[in-house]
């Protein structure tokens, strides 16, 4: 596995893998734009475990609630507490300060089912 790699799901979550193999999960720039103003994010508790595709968080815009599905199986290492006070970080910097949670990756082979950055861009063009 290469370091500092980012993958995307078809549902517009991203997972960024750091050099220690820890994944940081959030929603893509496209997703935040489509959702509009984000007013609340419910992040998972540290220590909780999730399977790939399982509902792990909730993001609420003014209009709607939307579920976030875990892009991989693993254990939650940290949730982004800054989102409690400032959920708009997801709009302002979705791929940076607007991250949702960090997760240990139980099975690296699950990443193979995800899209890399180029594939995700192509996917966005397809669905546009």
């Amino acid at each position: 596995m290469s370091t500092n790699t980012i993958y995307f799901t078809d549902d517009h979550e991203y997972i960024q893998i750091d050099e220690d193999g820890i994944g940081t999960v959030g929603i893509s720039s496209y997703a935040q734009q489509q959702l509009g103003d984000i007013v609340f994010v419910e992040c998972p508790n540290e220590g909780a475990s999730f399977n790939v595709g399982e509902e792990v968080a909730v993001v609420e815009s003014v209009k709607v609630a939307s579920e976030i599905y875990s892009p991989v199986s693993g254990e939650i290492l940290e949730s982004n507490e800054d989102l409690d006070e400032n959920p708009a970080l997801v709009n302002e910097d979705p791929m940076g300060d607007g991250w949702f949670f960090k997760i240990s990756i139980a099975d690296e082979s699950e990443l193979e089912g995800l899209k890399d950055e180029t594939e995700y861009q192509e996917y966005l063009e397809e669905i546009a």
Binding site: H12, I27, Y69
Partner: peptide, 9 residues
Amino acid sequence: MTKEALLME
């Protein structure tokens, strides 16, 4: 996320 949530055209 679901398609409805994304306010797809």
